[in-house]
């Protein structure tokens, strides 16, 4: 084989094979709500935080607060990241709070949602867990978990309804 032809072949066949896959994190969609929607609204001194357990460790997926309109905002911050489950009069259920995390959640086993105090420096989850679910293989590249739990309200509790987490795995090229 002459030299030009050898170089041509080398260019065509060597480059595609040597590119590494790069992990860039996971996207997470959270649907969370109660029968009486306002119960999930923000408390002035608290916010919500979604965690996952990965290889026996706990990692934070994202923090948010919910205003009186059931709009979810990143915490701390001013970025709207979705809406807690609500059903406008005559309309369809609105839902879906979205997070992007740098954490590889491919091996995540469980997710749980907590209420955390604003300004805390402790990175570990509080003991106020309002929802918990086991992640199972969903459809392609997705783990899903149904969240079950109760939200404390005025000394009582209100159960979560229609609450679910979907983890979209950040894989590389197509299979």
């Amino acid at each position: 084989m002459n030299r030009p032809l050898a170089l041509l072949v080398a260019i065509v066949f060597s480059c595609p094979a040597c590119l590494p896959d790069t992990f860039r994190g996971s996207d997470v969609v959270l649907e969370v709500g109660t029968q009486a929607g306002p119960d999930i609204t923000n408390r002035s001194t608290e916010h919500y935080e979604l965690f996952a357990t990965v290889n026996q460790g706990v990692v934070s997926i994202g923090k948010f607060r919910v205003d009186a309109e059931l709009v979810a905002w990143e915490h701390p911050g001013t970025q709207k990241i979705g809406v807690a489950n609500r059903q406008p009069a005559g309309g369809l259920p609105q839902s879906g709070i979205r997070f992007t995390t740098d954490v590889n959640l491919a091996d995540a086993e469980n997710v749980f949602l907590t209420i955390e105090k604003n300004g805390e420096t402790d990175l570990s989850p509080s003991e106020v867990v309002i929802g918990r679910g086991t992640l199972v293989d969903g459809r392609r590249s997705v783990l899903v978990a149904d969240l079950e739990g109760e939200v404390p309200v005025l000394g009582a509790t209100v159960p979560l309804v229609d609450s679910r987490v979907a983890v979209i795995l950040g894989e590389g090229e197509v299979d």
Binding site: G96, G138, V165, A166
Partner: peptide, 17 residues
């Protein structure tokens, strides 16, 4: 069904090949 139609939620997301 919801009013005769199939509901699809945001967590019904998946990666389709």
């Amino acid at each position: 069904k919801l009013i005769g139609l199939t509901p699809v939620r945001p967590t019904d997301v998946f990666i389709e090949e």
